[in-house]
Amino acid sequence: MTTTVDPRPVLEVEGLSLSVPGHDGPVPLLADVGLVVRPGETVGLVGESGSGKSLTIRTALGLTPRRARTAGRVTVDGLDVLSAGRGELRELRRHTAAMVFQDPRASVNGSRTIGAHLVEGLRAGGVDRRQARARAVELLERVGIREPARAMRRHPGEFSGGMLQRVVIAGALSTNPRLLLADEPTTALDVTTQAEVVSLLTSMQAEAGMGMVFVTHDLTLAAAVCDRVVVMYAGRVVEVAAGDELFRSPAHPYTAALLDAHPGLHGPRAALRAVPGRPLALAETPSGCSFRDRCTEADDACAEEVPALRRHGGSDAACLRPGREAWA
């Protein structure tokens, strides 16, 4: 963690809060979210559906929901995204940051060829037609598509999900972005393909020295892939820790509960322990700690105020009594 030089972060989210208008007043979706990604670093963003992880990275590209109100600061490679104009955002999306979505099938226009898709992206980045074609073939080869020149003429429907996700990754990397936002890039793929796509992403990321945010709901995957993992619950960050640290000794009861709910291959066979209750939206959380009514360790003190992130071992956790050893 502590290197002598601290390179300027490619993504810096500070105290980000976001709400959308609802029938009775604004509905909060994110509260005080913080996130730092430096070049060459992979940061995992983990949480259940609706915890705000996708919303956070969309905000990094200026893709906030209609009529959303935001507070805080989001900086991508020096650009203040929340106050950026349309042209600045377009430049940001074309050159600085790229995104890979969950379902590759849905994220390309099915009626055009792969070649047209890649060339279009490159041309928008200011590359001329012939160079764009050559570069597209090269990119396809780099992401492991066989016979890339022929693949250029194929339609998305002719590729398997994993292969198409490789094509999408090629497209995302075509403009040499400084920041790659991967929004559950493997969720729609089968398990063996998942591993291939993940290793492709991480090797490309290391090669290019990009910063990467890896959004997933798979805590084990995040712990294996990421330098740091940020765990979100109900629109708030509840724990930040190095990947292996998080896995070994979770400091927040929610993280621990997530790990306990995951079936393991090793060790004695035990019944899976589901987290009691259901994931809540930020708007319906109780006072104080958002997790307290699902937490087995909560007491009256937890209801008083939202706990701040505090250092505990290798983690920062938003909990009054962090660490398994403190729990009954």
Partner: peptide, 14 residues
């Protein structure tokens, strides 16, 4: 409303 439309917006197309 298809997802590809958003993904092109993310790529910086108007």
């Amino acid at each position: 409303s298809r997802a590809y439309v958003e993904s092109y917006a993310v790529m910086g197309f108007s």
